[in-house]
Design a protein around this nucleic acid. Structure first.
Lengths: 215, 215
DNA sequence: CGTAGGCCTTACGCAGGCGTTACGCCGGCC
DNA sequence: GGCCGGCGTAACGCCTGCGTAAGGCCTACG
């Protein structure tokens, strides 16, 4: 989840509560920062306060809705009038909750949205004799099953989704690991190595020196 | 199931009875709350009292019928006249039961509706040498009967319905337990263990570390 | 009122995922 | 030709996540 809320105390409280519910939560305190994070990370759901200083919540919403993304939006608003609800939904929000709200209701709605987001996401990726189904979490090569760990699966998914384009190690860190990953770590190289080993021959992952990796 | 009934004592009694029959049951005491839950959760069947304070049962029924959902509706009504029955069915209910009713009849009708709601799936699930009949609550492996508890049966049903895809512990909690399940509980692991033990060998349930389980 | 069984919890041991450090190879550059 | 930066690879250790046992609560039932 990404929680976008300028009131820092509220944001922290919500994040803590959601983490207790088992969710992975990032926080933004303004619209510009939110757009940056949305650009860089993939979220299942964004909890978006409508009244943001600087870049307004509506703008964030529009920006997100305009691009074809599987990310769902839950709008938070101070005034729970019907007009707001209509506005929010026409702007591209997927759900809407007026402040003050019951925390349990927020959780329930986020769960529902996250499930929708997962359902909507998964086309089966196929390249060469590789087949990867994110929904079923299955990867095969030449019909033969591959037992991949989470990181390996994530890296392979990112490479396949890039469709032959080069993906930098930094991109992989942000997509497969999380936003606070140590930029000087060696773990991507090690994961790539293990992945290559499990994929077998002929080799499919090419190193582009100084830039990144591609299928 | 979702039971919508403003008489709290009756609602609790019905829910308890249905849980004894192996169903996962949520409760709403008014129409607005029911609409919220229906918005957020997926149910096979809604048991809907017609006479609700605030948002009337008919309105809930209409709202639900207007959207393309696999959820079935069983209307409960205080007066068992034919007129009511006709009204209910034209509103979009799938079945109808007048109060007072025999509990066994309620169960039978709900079973029938639940089966219809799921009839995208074959009524009897079969994978490998496993056979599972949700209607009769019977499970066999290699022709040999398995004595499963409700939770074990539910978990196995979910895994078989997933058809080899990975099912997360969180999904299992939502499907087999109910909406108030503690996300950090250990009970899924224990149930999986007992299930594996009862299923015998060769082992059929695979653990995908950090993700979930699959058949 | 006692018993049995379903179910959840706590506690603990263990395998494996994952990140680290260290080192060797290779190509480019001054 | 020596230096250096980028990468592959091996080996090690931490610690998460899972399996499993044991105990306790609650409900159903005799």
């Amino acid at each position: 989840m990404l929680v976008v809320e300028d009131e820092e105390v509220l944001a922290a409280a919500v994040a803590r509560g959601l983490r207790r519910e088992g969710m992975a939560v990032d926080i933004s305190h303004d619209g510009a920062d939110a757009l940056g994070k949305l650009d860089v990370n993939r979220y299942d759901v964004v909890v978006l306060d409508r009244d943001l200083p600087g870049v307004h919540g509506d703008q964030v919403c529009r920006a997100l809705a305009s691009q074809a993304t599987p990310t769902r939006i839950l709008m938070l608003t101070a005034s729970g009038t019907v007009d707001d609800r209509v506005d929010g939904l026409t702007l591209g929000a997927d759900d809407y909750l007026g402040k003050p709200f019951a925390f349990s209701e927020l959780v329930a709605r986020l769960r529902a949205l996250a499930r929708r987001s997962r359902d909507a996401l998964p086309p089966v990726l196929e390249r060469h004799d590789l087949r990867l189904d994110p929904a079923r979490r299955e990867a095969t090569r030449g019909g033969h099953f591959l037992r991949l760990t989470r990181k390996e699966f994530g890296v392979l998914e990112a490479l396949m989704a890039a469709d032959g384009a080069v993906v930098s190690a930094e991109d992989l860190l942000e997509r497969v690991w999380d936003e606070h990953a140590d930029p000087f770590t060696n773990t991507v190289r090690v994961t790539i190595m293990n992945l290559r080993r499990k994929l077998g021959r002929p080799p499919l992952i090419e190193t582009v020196v100084g830039v990144g990796y591609r299928l």
